[in-house]
């Protein structure tokens, strides 16, 4: 097969659908990073919370047959875990990276343990009794395959992501709550002297970011797929964090960063059958993020140097 045919086979319009489904879990994980970054906390625990979200999503859905309940439990659990993290971080001064690292490890091994004790199986868990998050199909598009592939067949949470991102953006940049929250992250002393409860804001940000990660987990196991696999988060929490860096903690830009990740992942998946080394494609978003991050810092440095200069009048 020559190169052009492969390109033709890879870049079809169904790639858009793939890209979006691949991006959504990353976007949710990214919102976790974004919210905590706004109070100047780098929360790397998304990975661990996602794993718990995945597992409990499947568990509750399997037991009760209600995906709504399953999503709620996952979100609640995410909030609980991050509330615990906030306690450890704010009250006992535990290093946030140590916390994140431990939560991630507990997430991986803890869910494996629960899988083994509750479902008496290991590796993965599939069952007909797991009720997935429903998919939204537009029957009037059935006759137009292109539009159908572009707009139909997304799960409920995939549509939900758009309002969530916009809501978070609005809350952060247009609301009282967000103004106060951001002031905590940008200049803590300014916030203190304005009578803002700094620790309360940090707690709120962490809990909300935990909710996002919990939702990401539930979506991953019930919306994106309909099963539980060990380690199924597969680095999406970290990708979300990378995308957050890419977008400078602004939810809208960060979400675009996530789409880039989703795109490169789906292209990489499509290249695999053709024997083309896909590792470089998977690498690109990470490398790009590091470059964007460095470039933004260097640009800020140059700008500061200019404003500091004594030479201009």
């Amino acid at each position: 097969m020559d190169f052009m045919t492969i390109i033709g086979n890879v870049f079809t319009y169904s790639l858009v659908h793939d890209m979006i489904t691949a991006s959504v879990p990353i976007i949710l994980a990214c919102m976790c990073a974004v919210i905590s970054r706004q109070v100047n906390i780098i929360n790397i625990a998304a990975e661990g919370i996602i794993m718990f979200g995945c597992f409990f999503g499947v568990l509750v859905s399997y037991m009760t047959g209600s995906w709504v309940l399953a999503v709620l439990v996952s979100v609640g659990l995410g909030m609980l875990i991050s509330a615990f993290m906030a306690l450890a971080y704010l009250k006992y001064n535990v290093n946030i990276f140590v916390l994140g690292l431990c939560v991630n490890m507990i997430g991986t091994s803890g869910t494996r343990f629960l899988l083994q004790t509750i479902f008496k199986t290991s590796g993965n868990f599939v069952s007909d009794k797991i009720v997935p998050i429903p998919r939204v199909n537009f029957s009037f598009l059935d006759n137009i395959p292109v539009l159908k592939s572009l707009f139909s067949g997304y799960s409920f949470t995939e549509w939900l992501v758009i309002p969530i991102v916009i809501f978070i953006w609005f809350m952060l940049y247009k609301s009282v709550w967000g103004l106060r929250l951001r002031s905590v992250g940008l200049n803590e002393m300014a916030a203190v002297t304005s009578g803002i409860d700094v620790n309360g804001k940090k707690l709120a940000a962490l809990v909300l970011s935990g909710a996002c990660a919990g939702l990401a987990g539930a979506h991953l196991s019930l919306g994106y797929s309909c099963l539980f696999i060990e380690n199924m988060s597969g680095g999406r929490g970290f990708m979300g964090m990378a995308a957050m860096q890419f977008g400078g903690a602004n939810p809208l830009w960060a979400a675009i960063g996530c789409v880039v990740f989703g795109f490169s992942n789906s292209v990489a998946n499509r290249l695999t059958p053709y024997g083309i080394p896909n590792q470089f494609v998977t690498m690109i978003p990470y490398v790009a993020t590091i470059i964007v991050l460095s470039a933004s810092v260097v640009l800020a440095m140059i700008k500061r140097r200019k404003s500091e200069s004594a030479l201009k009048a």
Binding site: A88, Y92, N93, V94, N95, V98, L99, L101, C102, V103, M105, I106, T108, S109, G110, R112, F113, Q116, T117
Partner: peptide, 20 residues
């Protein structure tokens, strides 16, 4: 399951980090 031990070790580390 061995995974239980793998879960308890990071919890232990959290406890130690929160030793106050």
């Amino acid at each position: 399951p061995k995974s239980l031990i793998d879960t308890v070790v990071p919890i232990l580390i959290l406890f130690i980090a929160m030793d106050q």
